[in-house]
């Protein structure tokens, strides 16, 4: 039997990693909920965001936590433009085309990064990279605690945006009733692009929170997005709350199965859950009936 301290620290670590997973899943689930498409470029866009953080730090000397204020609006704009100028015109309004377009985008981004940065793994060196916060017998990595708190703040702000602002309400309206939204004067194409932009902005924030403790190479995003897909299915496709809770659950499961089965088998727990959800509750924890 492992000691309680180790269990608690694995639990805390899982929650902290899970919060960042949730942030990545948030963008994926929002885009799915509104545009009804799976964005296959999500992972490549996360990798691109991580490289952007790397560039900011290594070449421009901007700290990741400062870069978040530059990269978030930048990625929002990029996401907006990609939806408006690439995905929407290339798909001709057909959902299955959108899948292929996002898949194509992911290949282009990934190979573009390979061309520019080679397949080397890179990391950034920040002074607080290894600092810890001590709570009782628990030692928590400071960047991870920051990531945990920030992920919740972002999820909360996103929730407020969706509930309080006209744009947020328009996003929810378009998600369920495109014709009714257009006839209420909502520019549906604009709302699609805003939603895609928000998804990209979430990735930029996640990248800034990840980079102080993680490495980046041109395929780094894929591992996260595979987990994010599981979270989206677990939480319920299109559910914001589901993504948040699902992210935390998956983070804890990964951490605890790593503890009991060994580090390299940590992800087994995640995919076991994925299969169980598909078998017994295909709509997810908070998902609406299809």
């Amino acid at each position: 039997m492992l000691k309680l301290d180790i269990f608690l620290s694995a639990l805390a670590n899982g929650l902290m990693t899970g919060a960042v997973y949730a942030l990545i899943a948030l963008g994926l689930t929002l885009v799915y909920g509104v545009l009804h498409i799976i964005n296959f470029a999500h992972g490549a866009m996360l990798t691109a965001a991580m490289f952007a953080v790397f560039i900011c730090h290594a070449w421009l000397g901007i700290d990741p936590y400062l870069a978040v204020f530059i990269l978030t609006p930048l990625f929002f704009g990029l996401g907006y433009a990609i939806q408006r100028l690439v995905i929407s015109p290339a798909s001709h309004g057909d959902d299955s085309n959108i899948l292929l377009v996002t898949l194509g985008l992911s290949i282009i981004i990934e190979n573009g990064l390979l061309m520019g940065f080679r397949s080397d793994t890179r990391s950034i060196d920040v002074p607080y990279g290894f600092s810890v916060i001590e709570i009782g017998n628990l030692f928590l990595s400071t960047p991870k605690v920051i990531a945990f708190v920030a992920a919740f703040v972002v999820a909360g702000l996103l929730g407020l945006l969706l509930v309080r602002t006209d744009t947020g309400k328009a996003i929810r309206a378009v998600a369920k009733e495109r014709t009714g939204a257009a006839l209420s004067g909502i520019d549906v194409e604009h709302i699609y692009a805003v939603t895609f932009g928000i998804g990209a902005a979430c990735l930029a924030i996640a990248a800034c929170l990840l980079m102080p403790t993680f490495l980046v190479n041109p395929r780094a995003g894929n591992a996260f997005v595979l987990v994010a897909f599981t979270i989206v299915v677990l939480g319920g496709m299109g559910s914001i709350g589901g993504a948040l809770i699902g992210g935390l659950i998956i983070g804890v499961v990964e951490s605890l199965s790593g503890l009991y089965f060994g580090e390299s088998l940590g992800q087994i727990g995640i995919f076991l859950i994925f299969i169980l959800v598909l078998l017994f509750r295909p709509t997810g924890l908070f998902g609406a009936k299809a």
């Binding site: 309206a173 998600a175 369920k176 009714g180 006839l183």
Partner: peptide, 8 residues
Amino acid sequence: GRKIFPNM
């Protein structure tokens, strides 16, 4: 068919 927003 009204086309109201059922989720709101």
